[in-house]
Design a protein around this nucleic acid. Structure first.
Lengths: 160, 160
DNA sequence: ATTGTTAGACAACAAGGTTGTCTAACACAG
DNA sequence: CTGTGTTAGACAACCTTGTTGTCTAACAAT
């Protein structure tokens, strides 16, 4: 019964990965095989007002160089456009293209469907509790999606 | 305030990262500043019987080359030792050193303390529920800790 | 003995991150 | 207007964790 703290961590990671892997697979099935959740996340930040690389970096708690790399990929694949900012010649204005918006729409729908499936499995009350408790525990920390070298151990059951 | 599926994913990631970041920081504070949770995880697998690179790769659902790289790091830092296997000249026997065992011990203690803190915050019942539900939702999938970009690489590379 | 499988090493490369350095452009004194 | 500081973005070197591909040595089994 009594689980270890490491199990808990693994469980959370497992939940996250289950969701994300399924979503990515489904997104690929729908024709977008070159987008990852990070990209979606970045597009959302751009759409929400982070319209230049430095700002995007700040919002994602990542260096501006890292942000620039992500943007380069996104631009290359046609999900965001870059134009010179008329108001500041240093800046390049970012804009999510209609293709990018389509990805965000589909991504959202897929994640919602996935959540719905969970809802069916454990019931609305349990899911609401889970979310509420997690929210309380995580607190108001900025969302970072990076992190080289994370996880912990398994213990007890042993990796199957 | 019905949340979106994406929020749920972010919440799970947030929970995981909270735990892991705190644990890594605490481990560093205790003198182990060159170990990451992945390393801990690998050591545990080794201790649990994955005593050669190929087997370790299999258990961690990762290529044997990736496993070999991790082992190289672990060996370099003195957490595992490699000796030739007398029974099979191809193999190199892996063994967690006493230093490695110390890390595992500390890591376990830290994670348990962290879980305890959560327990204090939301109560034993809520935590038990959270774990039970997550377990049900994640199902029996193998633990993978990889994922650059959080998801499938369409194409890993290799010599052209 | 030939044939097939496995372990491990080496190499090239992907994707995401980090610093550091540099230039162009802005902002704001004085 | 000019000097000084800050900011945006680009470029480059490098880290980490992963991926394939290729190769040799060693084992296994016909």
């Amino acid at each position: 019964m009594s689980r270890s703290g490491a199990d808990l961590a693994l469980l959370l990671l497992g939940g996250f990965r289950t969701l994300v892997d399924d979503a990515t697979a489904e997104l690929a099935r729908r024709g977008f095989d070159d987008v990852r959740p990070v990209h979606d996340f970045a597009m959302r930040a751009i759409a929400a007002g982070a319209d230049n690389a430095s700002e995007l970096g700040r919002r994602m708690s990542v260096s501006k160089q890292a942000a620039a790399k992500t943007i380069a990929v996104l631009a290359e694949r046609g999900y965001v456009a870059r134009e010179p900012d008329p108001a500041d010649a240093r800046r390049k204005l970012l804009q999510v293209t209609s293709l990018g918006e389509e990805v965000m729409r589909q991504g959202e729908a897929i994640f919602d469907e996935l959540r719905d499936r969970w809802l069916q499995q454990i019931g609305p009350d349990a899911l609401a509790d889970l979310e509420a408790h997690l929210t309380a525990l995580v607190g108001p920390r900025p969302v970072r999606l990076d992190a080289p070298g994370w996880v912990a151990h398994d213990d007890g059951g042993g990796p199957a």
